[in-house]
Design a protein around this nucleic acid. Structure first.
Lengths: 347, 347
DNA sequence: GTGAAAGCGCTAACAG
DNA sequence: CTGTTAGCGCTTTCAC
């Protein structure tokens, strides 16, 4: 259980100098194949493992990357983390993961920890302007998520909200819901404006008056969606009503509100979500939603980082397309056939 | 964007030697308060940040800890990760997170990465006997999760399945379900045996014949629970049936199967889950379940690690108690039938 | 193709 | 209280 073996131990065991041992172990071409094999064997029998701290110190490459997200417990961010983890791992490096809880101070502390760990690069969902500072330290980083749009000069990865909204709207129109109600996030959010603008454009293109749409505000929570749906149902007490929700939690809350009001989904109410959270697959009916490519976002963010480090310059923001996941929460008003209510069907 | 400032830059700027600068910055008591302030100021204006690689190299303390779990995308493990992250962060260190996907080779690779990063300690959900090797490298580690029970000689953290099963059974009995059916995991799993044994004990204590219980096997998935429940309903086509499921996914699948069979939950069917996954809160009805203390497990695992490093020896396995979360999936039969009719099974 | 030596940034003796 | 010195383990010139 004593001292871990160093390259000097290996060198001694192989009867070579430590520089030769190092060369052999780093697959340097300037070393005799027989010597290399000898060193390899010695390293193996000594149980040698390269000390990345020393390597990082000498070479400036720590083999460490950082990820700062709001909360690893949030399924969306967990997927992002997984994607980043996979790419970082494929490149022989390791990932430091931090949760900021949308807190400026925590974020600042985590960014400092990343710098002190001498990470080679970082993926950050920015909650404040801390990242401006971060850029000054010369650590390559890419931003991720919608909050990254506030930093147009920094390479970033996001989902294509405009494309997603159009996808949802097209699908709703197809099923006979040309003027869906909207339950949106708080007015303060950038994403809300983008969502609404795209809806307006889509309406205009179809010659429908955007002003005719029912809109409710919410706060991206289950409870918020529940309350907003109650208001919506009060405003439109009869007839089928279709609702396009700004996220899945809102949609799930809306679904419960409808049920408790005796309006059955999808018979009396159609609900379309946005996110692709796992819980949507287990609700009743299953939640039809637009899935953000969370894992792919994490992967692409990590790839962008490696590209940047390798000197391949990154262009600004990359928008990844979203995908429609059909489950059972939308009625097909155009069809004469009885409604299909699927509960199973996970992505 | 040039070279990051080192402690030598700080020392020069403050007009002291680098060791004095180091002492001042490490809050060593052996330094004049005025000097310390001077150095602090210099460090600040230089934009100095300690290089943890160098610190780790010199002191042997890398400030890095490792976590190897099956999948960060699994909500249970994400909670564990969060708990560990929080404690590690509170101690000024950072956490390297890896997902093994229950794969031996990936696990081995991750453990090697941890060793090479010279982590000060690791938390591992073991999938294979790789951890036996790991122990030999002198890196402190604690195991976590039910698979850790295979290594009784290593400190580990788990949830108290026996206590959880008793909690569930007590609650079911209280609500008038003295002989619930069981949907369990695969026969190969250790957890299954423990679950079943506890149920038997509980039955015996209440003078009910364990053999009278309906049992179905499943595989811990939604689809598996769905199929198992179909078989259960076929075996017991009439009357209220209560089911204690080995995990929440099974329970959610069972709920769907019941609904599709026209047996409404909780009117005709009572379903009790086990895990505490988020999706259970959004199902209809909400899933009553026994929640494993996932985050607390992560916290305690990290704490145990710090204890061990600090020389406070760890005792074997710690079992953390689970908690009943009441939502809407259990019927209270006590309303019409006398409660606590021990020994009276239905047949 | 191999060895000797320097040094990455820091902390921990050891002197003063 | 503060400065000097010696490495931690590794890679990388620079010689040979």
């Amino acid at each position: 259980m004593g001292r871990r073996p160093t390259i000097i131990d290996v060198a001694r065991l192989a009867g070579v100098s430590k520089s030769t041992a190092a060369r052999a172990l780093t697959d340097s071409p300037d070393v005799n194949e027989a010597t290399r094999e000898k060193v390899r064997k010695a390293a193996h029998t000594a149980g040698y493992e390269r000390n990345h701290l020393a390597v990082g110190m000498r070479s400036g490459r720590s083999g460490l990357f950082g990820l700062v997200i709001p909360d690893i417990t949030n399924p969306f961010w967990a997927e992002v983390a997984r994607g980043a983890q996979d790419i970082v791992g494929e490149n022989g490096a390791s990932l430091l993961v931090f949760s900021s809880d949308w807190d400026h101070d925590r974020e600042a502390a985590h960014l400092r920890a990343l710098r002190q760990a001498r990470v080679e690069g970082a993926i950050i969902n920015p909650v404040s302007d801390n990242v401006d500072d971060f850029g000054r330290f010369g650590v390559p980083f890419v931003l991720i998520g919608s909050s990254a749009e506030r930093f147009p000069d920094t390479p970033s990865i996001g989902s294509d909200i405009a494309q997603a909204v159009r996808l949802g709207l097209d699908h709703l129109v197809l099923l006979g819901h040309p003027t869906p109600a909207l339950i949106l996030g708080p007015k303060s959010r950038l994403a809300r404006a983008r969502f609404l603008r795209t809806v307006h454009e889509h309406c205009l293109e179809r010659d429908v008056d955007p002003g005719a749409l029912l809109v409710e505000d919410s706060d991206y929570t289950f409870e918020g969606g529940y309350a907003a749906m109650q208001r919506l149902l009060a405003r439109r007490p009869i007839g089928h009503i279709a609702v396009f929700c700004a996220n899945d939690l809102i949609a799930l809350g809306a679904m419960l509100a409808a049920r408790e009001a005796g309006r059955e989904c999808p018979r009396d109410v159609s609900i379309l979500g946005f996110d692709g959270v796992p819980a949507g697959a287990f609700s009743w009916p299953g939640l039809t939603t637009i899935e953000k490519p969370a894992r792919e976002m994490g992967r692409r963010a990590a790839m962008a980082l490696f590209d940047e480090i390798a000197g391949r310059p990154q262009d600004g923001r990359i928008y990844l397309p979203c995908r429609l996941v059909e489950r059972g929460s939308l009625a097909d008003l155009g069809a004469q056939t009885p409604l299909r209510v699927a509960g199973v069907g996970r992505s």
